Simulated scan of single mutants.
Amino acid sequence: MSKEENENNDFGGRFLQILNDGMLCLMTSVGHKTGLFDAMARLSPSTSIEIAKAAKLNERYVREWLGAMVTGRIIDYEPSTGRYSLPAAHASCLTRDAGIDNLAMFTQYIALMGNVEDDIVKCFKKGGGVPYSAFPKFQEIQAEETARVFDARLVGDILPLAQGLTGRLKSGIDVLDVGCGTGHAINLMAKAFPKSRFWGYDISREGIGAARAEAKKMKLKNAKFKIVDASKIGDREKFDLVTAFDTIHDQARPAKVLKCIHRALRKGGTFLMQDIAASSRLHENMENPLAPSLYTISTMHCMTVSLAYGGEGLGTVWGEQKAKEKLAEAGFESIDVRQVEGDILNYYYVTTKMSKDL
């Protein structure tokens, strides 16, 4: 067999695996949404009837789902007893009890982006973009992802990346979160640091509504939320800390947003920006284990949403070099890029406003 034939066979086999894994992502999303993984993690080896009863689901659908999970080597099956089990090692990254290590929730993005595939194809032909309104469940999934990460890491791991910040928050400072979404980060910080004052800005009426509802439920008096276009923030030297969690690359006018943030900070104030851990240079992302997923999410959501509003279309993988360039253009001089141990998805850019705006 020639070298070319061997390569064709190798790629054919790899692509069959890609096809199967793509289908398994959809089934994993179903397992997450229906609570099947959570139910199975609490059960001893069980029949499909027992699993369906525990999860309060239709047995016929559960049985077919189990077929995909077993042949996909995600769930174990004993033919002699007809019983299924979820290995503990698999449960540790598929169940809600896994907390920050739960990877199953990410598979929900597959179906979400599939809903706009035809619209994206039209954009390939005609340009333009797909608006945020075409992704009705995006806020819901983002809220779940935010809670998963920030409940575990925001106060103890992320905020301390900026030296001395925790102490200042305990003493009492003014804080703004730009693109706050459903406001969970602001509410967590407001609860942890009752002497500080917190504001969350977002363009989404739905997100701000959810943020206010959560703040009320948590009985917070130091968290406020406003519907604000991030590119039109008019505050001047009002805040000691501004945060932007995974939101700048989505903006239609990121350069303008960053300048607004610089202007809103007091001299000596801190800007903490979370964004995707990647390079701006394609070849440097070849070893990034998440690169194919990141470029896909960019094409199907982040880039296209920005372009839909006549924006720059930076995309998810704008990368460290471009991020530093944009921050410098906004007036930030010294920029540190840091990571939280165990977090391969994000970089945390920490910078200080050195001088007042003219």
Rank of each mutant, 00 (worst) to 15 (best):
Asn222Gly: 01
Leu241Cys: 02
Glu214Arg: 14
Lys221Thr: 14
Phe239Val: 07
Lys217Ala: 13
Phe245Asp: 05
Lys216Tyr: 08
Asp235Lys: 15
Asp246Tyr: 07
Lys221Trp: 07
Phe239Ala: 01
Glu214Ile: 09
Asp246Gln: 06
Lys216Gln: 10
Gly234Met: 14
Val242Tyr: 02
Val228Ala: 11
Lys217Arg: 15
Ile227Tyr: 03
Lys224Ser: 15
Leu241Met: 05
Asp235Met: 11
Arg236Gly: 03
Phe245Ile: 00
Ile227Gly: 11
Arg236Asn: 12
Ala213Thr: 10
Ala215Val: 11
Ala223Arg: 02
Thr243Ser: 08
Asp240Ile: 00
Thr243Leu: 03
Ala211Asn: 04
Val228Glu: 14
Leu220Ile: 07
Lys221Tyr: 05
Thr243Pro: 01
Arg236Met: 10
Lys226Tyr: 12
Lys219Trp: 02
Asp240Thr: 01
Lys238Trp: 03
Phe225Ser: 02
Ile233Pro: 04
Ala211Tyr: 04
Gly234Pro: 09
Lys221Pro: 03
Ile233Asn: 04
Leu220Gln: 13
Phe225Lys: 06
Asp229Lys: 08
Lys221Ile: 09
Asp229Arg: 11
Ala223Ile: 05
Leu241Val: 02
Leu220Ser: 07
Lys216Cys: 14
Ala211Trp: 00
Lys238Tyr: 06
Lys216Thr: 13
Asn222Cys: 00
Lys217Pro: 06
Ile233Val: 13
Lys226Thr: 11
Met218Lys: 15
Lys219Val: 07
Val242Leu: 02
Asp240Cys: 03
Asn222Pro: 01
Ala230Val: 10
Gly234Cys: 09
Val242His: 02
Phe239Asn: 00
Arg212Gln: 14
Ala211Gly: 08
Lys221Ala: 12
Ala223Gln: 04
Ala215Cys: 04
Glu214Gln: 15
Lys232Gln: 15
Asn222Ala: 03
Val242Ser: 04
Phe245Pro: 01
Met218Trp: 13
Lys221Val: 08
Lys224Glu: 14
Ala211Pro: 08
Lys217Leu: 09
Lys226Ala: 10
Met218Arg: 15
Arg212Asp: 13
Met218His: 13
Ile227Val: 13
Ala223Asp: 05
Ser231Glu: 15
Leu220Pro: 05
Leu220Cys: 14
Ala244Asn: 11
Lys226Ser: 12
Asp246Lys: 01
Asp235Arg: 10
Ala244Val: 08
Lys217His: 13
Lys216Ser: 12
Gly234Lys: 10
Asp240Phe: 00
Ala213Pro: 00
Asp229Ile: 03
Lys216Ala: 12
Ala244Lys: 04
Val228Asp: 07
Gly234Tyr: 02
Gly234Asp: 10
Ala223Pro: 01
Ala244Thr: 09
Phe245Met: 08
Asp229Thr: 12
Arg212Pro: 08
Lys219Ile: 09
Ala244Gln: 04
Leu220Asn: 13
Ala244Cys: 12
Phe225Trp: 07
Lys232Gly: 11
Lys221Met: 10
Lys232Pro: 08
Arg212Leu: 13
Asp235Val: 10
Asp235Ala: 15
Ala223Lys: 04
Phe239Trp: 01
